[in-house]
Design a protein around this nucleic acid. Structure first.
Lengths: 230, 230
DNA sequence: GCAATAGTTATCGTATACGATTTCGTACTC
DNA sequence: GAGTACGAAATCGTATACGATAACTATTGC
């Protein structure tokens, strides 16, 4: 359902393989570090290795897998540095996407986003981080789905996919951060409703993500362990 | 001779093919609309079609070629809409890259960039748009090459590659724009030298590219012809 | 003369096969 | 017992082959 404009035609086997493996990475079936053996995946999917190889290379281009010559592919890891890069990039492209979308966001969209945000608030009460995370994506989707520039939208999706692939690993919910996040969402909606300048919306959206990154970094620093040094 | 062996290990044939075809697209040997026949390229490069196919798909992911199932690949076209998307995206990621690089740019770098910019000014006198364009890339390379976030840097490079592939087509030099561009370069250097805030540098860099886009759009509107409708 | 259709050709998509490279386990030496 | 050398297994990388699909061409009917 996150596919970008599927033209509904008969998909080639390489596309099937791409979609299948991508889905497994994003939903956590293949978690970071998982070894992707071409022959095995090919057998699972009932195709030969050639289209699988092509699919893997596409996923590599998106940063979801790491490919080493004559060695093989693994699901991209949880290196904190990579996390920082991804979040920083996402803050930029997502900020832009949100700002570009803003003029196209209608009252109905805002209402929908607000409803999602209130659900998120409830998740805070019952401590349901899994649901919270999913709702968070829904919320932001409303904000940037109207982005008129498909290139930027694609970059946003890529960033989210990378984050999704890390979700089930050490990069978790930073407790104190969630409540602030919900409040920032509400503030963002207000800006959009009142037709604030694009600059301002972009800045707010970008800071929203930067704050999440900072919260993570603060936590990581306090923990002060190099969990993944490889 | 086109290959610039970058001190890496033995490249796979798919990588050779990727680099070779990419180079031909970027340097204009294969101009937009050019039909990329797998078998033909394979023969030219002395490899089989499988690695060529993989290379083409990678180039597709970068937006340099367009691939249609059971039909074939062509070098991505010059659709004005795509141009707009690319420039807009580039203005965002390049602005960010420049801002992130700024604190890392030393006096020597600024001097180098300034020298390049003065050369560009000379090109205006002798009307040498080809050289101007190349120098322009050199100038901006100095600004963002220190970008500490490789993801963002990669996005910038992709954008430049796409523009390069269009260079030899109808998207040309907009005469009145070039002089302003050189002045904006100088202003950018001043901001960097004086250690201006990242926000300010980002804004300036972004506007610099937006202005180029606007100049093109103004020209395109006045021309008002759909030159390439195919 | 033009449109529709059938046959031909060109090109892609993928399966299979095999050589190349790496990795892992085992035996041997010091 | 530790380290090294060798060999076997696993896996990747690419060539080749062939079926599938779309583009092209010639022929037929009107």
């Amino acid at each position: 359902m996150t596919e970008t404009a599927t033209a509904a035609g008969p998909r080639s086997k390489s596309e099937q393989a791409y979609a299948a493996v991508k889905a497994r990475i994003v939903d956590g079936t293949y978690s970071p570090g998982y070894r992707l053996v071409l022959a095995k995946i090919a057998e699972d999917l009932g195709v030969s290795v050639v289209p699988v190889r092509e699919a893997i290379r596409r996923l590599e281009a998106e940063g979801l897998v790491k490919f080493e010559r004559n060695v093989g592919a693994t699901v991209s890891g949880i290196d904190p540095t990579e996390y920082l890069y991804t979040m920083q990039t996402l803050s930029i492209v997502e900020g832009a996407a949100t700002a570009l979308s803003a003029p196209l966001i209608g009252a109905a969209d805002v209402a929908r986003a607000r409803a999602v945000n209130e659900e998120m608030r409830e998740c805070l009460e019952h401590f349901d981080p899994v649901r919270f995370t999913r709702l968070n994506q829904d919320f932001h989707s409303v904000l940037f789905e109207h982005c008129p520039n498909p290139h930027i939208l694609d970059l946003v999706h890529r960033g989210w996919n990378r984050l999704a692939s890390l979700r089930s690993s050490t990069f978790r919910f930073v407790p104190g951060r969630a409540r602030d996040s919900v409040d920032e969402h509400e503030a963002l909606l207000r800006l959009i409703e009142t037709g604030a300048a694009a600059d301002e919306i972009e800045r707010a959206a970008r800071l929203h993500r930067s704050a999440t990154l900072d919260a993570y970094l603060a936590q990581a620093t306090s923990t002060e362990q190099q969990t993944a040094q490889q």
